[in-house]
Simulated scan of single mutants.
Amino acid sequence: MILGHIGVRKGSKGVPRKNFRSLLGRPLLDWSLDILLAHPRIDAVVVSTDDQEMYDHAIAKGTLPIGLRPDHLATDRAAKWPVWQHAHEASAELLGEAQTAFVDLDVTCPLREPADVDRALDLFFAEHPDMVMSCTEARKNPYFNLVEPDETGALHVSKPLPDGVVARQQAPIVYEHVGGVYVVSPSYLRTATSLYDGRVIPYIMPPERSLDIDSEFDWTVVEALLKHRQSS
């Protein structure tokens, strides 16, 4: 039993009401939810939300009826991990069947494709980590071209190496964590207290599918990329 999960809050500071805002004629929520509902390897889907309109919308499309998210998990300071734990536990009570994987898609990453879910699942079942987390190679590197000010305001490389780095290719590889797809072991989800307690390995996505919508600028870029994809 593989459970698919979507977490969507009512509030959003960067882009007001973004999770249910129309993106090319579909709510942003549906760009992720429809992938899970149509995916042949996902057995059931749950949407965790504090928003009645989004909850009713998801239930009408066939998600599990777990009710609205508890208030303490609906603030802008609520972490992802306890939200996942609550949804996992509430769904387990309805399903009555042991889960083999918990798959989460962030609604803010609508450029991912169904094949990304497949590849992340394949990696999870081949490597047996506690969690597979989607990443992309970072455009900026703290060993080379990310800088931070000291107490005087002077800039320095964020993570200097003893011999320095004069070319990006010399710097250690670092990844950006993106919300494309997470695959989590149910036993790890029940017992750990945060994402990084156990063995978390990356599923690498290309940059053109790894943009997260956190601002109006991001929305404009993602919308343009989706239009281009649809016209290709």
Rank of each mutant, 00 (worst) to 15 (best):
M205H: 08
A224N: 12
A224Y: 00
I213V: 14
S215N: 07
L155D: 08
Q230I: 01
S12G: 05
E127T: 11
P16C: 05
E148L: 12
H128D: 10
M131E: 10
M133N: 06
P162F: 01
H177P: 04
D76N: 14
M54Y: 03
L68H: 09
P82N: 03
G11R: 06
Q99F: 15
P206I: 01
G180Q: 01
I173E: 08
D197S: 14
L155Y: 04
Q230W: 08
A74G: 15
P149I: 02
S32K: 01
C135S: 10
F124G: 10
A92P: 06
G11M: 10
I35H: 11
F125A: 06
V103Y: 02
F102D: 04
A79L: 15
Q170M: 13
Y196F: 15
F217A: 15
H88K: 09
I201R: 11
K10T: 13
D214R: 12
R209C: 01
V45L: 04
S32M: 01
D34I: 00
L121M: 14
D106R: 05
T75M: 05
G7H: 07
S22M: 13
P40K: 04
R112E: 02
V132C: 05
D76V: 12
I201W: 07
L211W: 01
S231L: 03
L94D: 02
P65E: 04
D214N: 12
G4A: 05
V83N: 14
T108K: 14
D34Y: 00
L211I: 15
R26T: 02
V178P: 10
Y188F: 15
D218P: 10
P186C: 02
P172S: 10
L28T: 04
P202V: 01
A138C: 05
G96E: 08
G4S: 13
Q52N: 06
I173C: 11
N141R: 11
D197R: 04
T63L: 07
L195S: 09
N145F: 02
M1D: 03
L33G: 09
D116E: 03
K140T: 15
A126S: 11
W84V: 11
T220D: 15
L105Q: 06
N19S: 10
L3Q: 06
A90F: 01
V157A: 08
